[in-house]
Design a binder for these strands. Structure first.
Lengths: 250, 250
DNA sequence: CGTAGAGTTGAGGGCGGTCAAGTCGTGTGG
DNA sequence: CCACACGACTTGACCGCCCTCAACTCTACG
């Protein structure tokens, strides 16, 4: 039986109920189920720069992010690194961590996390089909995103990659507002399969062309959302799209 | 009530019970559950080259492969294509196909598939937690694979990509045996984020160096599995690994 | 045997990586 | 409060890996 301090319990409920992001684990659990989860959960704080999942050790737990931002990484033995995703408040992670495929996770902002020991949560899942169903949805969404990332990494140019990243990160923000960009240029590069220099050059060019603006190194302002979307390469010009649809319907 | 011909029912059971691959949907269903699945399943044959999931239409069904090989694709409007994976007998697919993220699937060998209408299967899932649990495992495995692919596409050199692909495709085959390679050079290129010419050049070089051999364009023989694994870049030389471990433990 | 598509090989070019120098911004100690 | 230092970022020059273009060969199939 695990005892939870009031603060930790509050963190846990926030963690499980955070409804900020539409895809979080929320609104699907009964009070009884919540209590079962609370019994195995452990609330932690992670300072910036600290890894909370190590590459070498097989992940022994699932995590839910209650605040801050973290990066998920895959690393080659010679040090080359690929960031497979950024996770924020409300995100659930650990599903992809099996014995055979190690991956790491590190805070890029001070992080609040909720830790669920793997075996205990898996045991609970068999009694909570709602939660398992939710996790399947989460995994499917992550899978779809990973496939988009594969398209980006395999077939997009450097400019398209940076534009795609900025567009996605700025999604559900209105044009003109300041958007926090907690990661470094190096982390953006590791996410997009580029180098720091290339990312920096392209950001400078987009700034020069008036598509985006920046306040310091960690604040982004989108000036021309439409241009950004065009540069991302996922959609063609409307005229072209129309002609394509006509061609397809023939 | 759907009526199944004896041939179709035989295809379905083969489809659901195929135990060839350890990760297939098998051995977790009662006879009653099997009957429920059979009631909504539809067995189809797909000739080589034909798409059975179209990019444009949101996927309205799940599929289980009962024989042959297919490719899963993501395509940019200008025609650039990324193959996100190859699927074979026993594989389940459709999980990543949501309304917002279209992807396509096409047979590269004559294909036997088992089609499950999405809504009907989803309705069944709520009554069959075993199956939902199995699908979660499938999704997690796919997710881990997708992350490995991101590392490959983002950070590996052309030679490392080709070597990784050959090593993975030849996995669980003994060295020296002939391995079917049903996809074209162009499909390998689209999977690895390279061009046909680069793939061809690297295969020629590996052949010249005695690492692999080929019989025609669609048969592979691995001559030096260890060399192939080294070239893939995922593991270092043993000596180096040892020195690294010493450095890490300090 | 002939044709069409797939694959191979070579020559040259460009995009993004590498190397290097300089600038900015933030925190720290005098 | 300012001088300093360190790290993150920017910018430029150059280079190399892989792409592009092109010609040729091989394979499969009628």
């Amino acid at each position: 039986m695990t005892t939870l301090t009031p603060a930790a319990l509050s963190g846990l409920t926030r963690c499980l109920h955070c409804g900020v992001r539409a895809d979080s684990v929320c609104g699907v659990l009964s009070n009884e189920e919540l209590a079962s989860l609370a019994a195995i959960a452990e609330v932690q704080s992670v300072p910036r720069g600290q890894a909370f999942i190590e590459e070498q050790s097989p992940a022994s737990a699932f995590f839910n992010i209650s605040g801050g931002t973290a990066k998920l990484t895959r690393t080659l033995p010679d040090g080359r690194q690929q960031i497979t995703g950024f996770v924020r408040s409300g995100d659930f992670l650990g599903l992809a961590a099996t014995e055979s495929f190690a991956f790491g996770a590190e805070a890029i902002e001070p992080l609040g996390i909720c830790r669920f020991p793997r075996r205990r949560l898996e045991a609970l899942l068999s009694r909570m089909p709602h939660l398992e169903h939710r996790l399947l949805q989460v995994a499917c969404r992550d899978l779809a995103r990973a496939q988009s990332a594969m398209l980006l990494l395999g077939r997009k140019t450097a400019t398209e990659r940076v534009a795609s990243f900025l567009r996605d990160w700025a999604a559900d923000h209105r044009p003109g507002v300041e958007i926090a960009l907690p990661m470094t240029r190096g982390e953006i590069a590791d996410y997009l399969g580029l180098t720091i220099e290339t990312v920096s050059r392209i950001l400078s060019r987009l700034r020069r062309e008036g598509v985006i603006d920046t306040r310091g190194n960690h604040t982004l302002i989108v000036r021309q959302a439409r241009s950004l979307a065009m540069l991302a390469g996922d959609e063609e010009d409307d005229a072209l799209v129309c002609s394509h649809r006509q061609a397809a319907s023939r």
